[in-house]
Amino acid sequence: MTDTAHAGHLETATGLDNRKLAIWTFIGSECLFFASLISNYLVHKETWLTGPGPFPHEAWTSPAGKVFEPIIEIPLVTLGTALLLFSSLFVVLALANAQRGNRKGLLLWLGLTLLCGVFFVGMQVYEFTHFVHKGLTLKTNLFGGSFFVLTGFHGTHVTIGVIWLFTLWIEAFRGKIPPAKSLNLEIAALYWHFVDVVWVVIFPVVYLIK
């Protein structure tokens, strides 16, 4: 993870690390990615009540008389939201330990971050299966399509973050993240926080706003 051509340069022109600038650039670009997905969700939200249910906040009765209750489970998702927020806290604590050279602290907080991430993904897998059982799939209606695509791509980002942080945890376990290399973790942490703030937007937009 040291792909920089510092050839001849001891310092970069801005004094900022290449990789850190690159991850911020990537995060900036990702803003537009998620903005487009959220737009897709909101645009269809204006019309999806005409289609067959189930819906997030509204009950729907099929022509055959079958009643579909509102499908969103706020307590479950609140738990997931809290997990993701705490994981953001844990990963900065892990970083602070890495910078101070405290390997045990680094392993502990990074391990807790990973645990939160895994539980969040687990929460999402449970939620998705639950929805499918209640009759909501990608094909059912526009809510199903835009919901699964938006939260699914967010979940994919979380999963990639988990793989990334797990790789770093192994590295840290092998003592390969001394304070001089804490930037490796800082970059992964920036990505992780970004994935978290995307959820900070998705949570009210998808789950709370009727």
């Binding site: 600038l21 911020w24 995060i27 900036g28 670009s29 803003c31 537009l32 903005a35 909101l42």
Partner: peptide, 16 residues
Amino acid sequence: FTGVFVFPLIIATVLI
């Protein structure tokens, strides 16, 4: 870093 993040964020918000 703030610029690299906030400028896209503004465009993203306007887009939505």
